[in-house]
């Protein structure tokens, strides 16, 4: 029942997002060089606003319907809803900023993919978090910082994708359609997104380490620090550490920074993929299960 109640609005919102993305891309393609008309239409604003409100409403509804504890995120789909709501809010902001002209055309397809991912997470790969742990605060901290960190990295990646597009047009001496965000603005966006993403990923890593060490690292194996998940997460963290200092590490400026932003997101998605693979083995999310084992051990100790 809950799956259906979640999936149907999600499918509707995915359709709305796809429509908004189509509008944005068509608008971008139809723009003439140096044209200064607004980078978005009222319809596009409305669609994205509906998605943002829809995601938040759905997240709250799920929280109330599945009330188990004070934690708002019960499952992976809730994390994705939080991310989609925040991302839709970010797109709304982007659409109102003249300096970020055209970025919505790159962001909205990604929002559509996120919503589609949320449908999958709701219908076929539903993964509830284990909330009956001794460390719910750490778990909430970990999951929230992870999803919001991923959101920042996604913003950096769309900045990178647009940078590559604009730079490619400029290098090939083709006129840029419309007046898109400048390369300087996009580089600033990548750096800011990477900086925020780095902070959130740091929090996520630290909280993850706390959770794993409290659970004696059994979910990720005895040598959890060399597990693929930790290695990939650390590698992504390092990429963002480099990206936020790109103006000092000048060898990575420009095109390389854009590719790094995209590579960082791919690394994070790969880390999530590994989480999913591990969950299939353990049945629940790793940190939760390890904490459960830790709590069992504690109780046994009592």
């Amino acid at each position: 029942m809950t799956d259906t109640a979640t999936s149907i609005p999600l499918i509707l919102m995915t359709a709305l997002s796809a429509a908004a993305a189509t509008l944005a891309v068509r608008r971008l393609r139809a723009a003439r060089p140096q044209e200064q008309r607004p980078n978005t239409s009222p319809t596009q604003h409305l669609l994205v606003g509906l998605i943002a409100v829809g995601c938040i409403t759905l997240l709250l509804l799920r929280w109330l319907l599945l009330w188990e504890s004070w934690e708002p995120l019960h499952a992976h789909v809730d994390g994705l809803l939080l991310m989609c709501a925040s991302f839709a809010g970010a797109v709304l902001y982007i659409q109102t900023r003249p300096k970020l002209r055209g970025l919505a055309a790159f962001a909205l397809p990604l929002l559509t993919l996120m919503l589609a991912w949320a449908i999958c997470a709701s219908l076929w790969t539903y993964r509830p978090f284990r909330l009956d742990t001794l460390e719910p605060a750490w778990l909430v901290f970990h999951t929230t910082s992870t999803y919001l960190g991923l959101l920042c990295c996604a913003l950096g990646a769309i900045g990178g994708a647009m940078y590559l597009y604009v730079q490619g047009r400029l290098k090939s001496k083709h006129a840029v359609p419309g007046r898109l965000a400048s390369l300087e603005t996009l580089e600033t966006l990548i750096i800011r997104a990477a900086t925020l993403g780095f902070v959130l990923l740091t929090l996520s890593l630290v909280s993850g380490v706390v959770l794993v060490t409290r659970g004696e690292g059994t979910a990720l194996g005895i040598e959890w620090w060399v597990s693929p998940k930790v290695i990939l997460a650390t590698l992504a963290w390092a990429v963002y550490a480099l990206l936020m200092n790109i103006r000092h590490a000048s060898a990575f400026r420009g095109r390389r920074a854009a590719w790094l932003a995209i590579f960082g997101l791919v690394l994070l998605l790969a880390t999530y993929g590994i989480v999913g693979a591990m969950d299939k083995q353990t049945g629940t999310i790793d940190t939760a299960s390890s904490l459960k084992r830790a709590s069992d051990t504690d109780r046994g100790g009592d």
Binding site: R32, P33, Q34, L170, K171, K173, H174, A175, R253, G254, R255
Partner: peptide, 19 residues
Amino acid sequence: LSNVYLYNLDDLQQAVGVT
């Protein structure tokens, strides 16, 4: 070269075609 954008008169002509 990377991070260098060089335009000559022909390139600018291409750019202003629509104008």
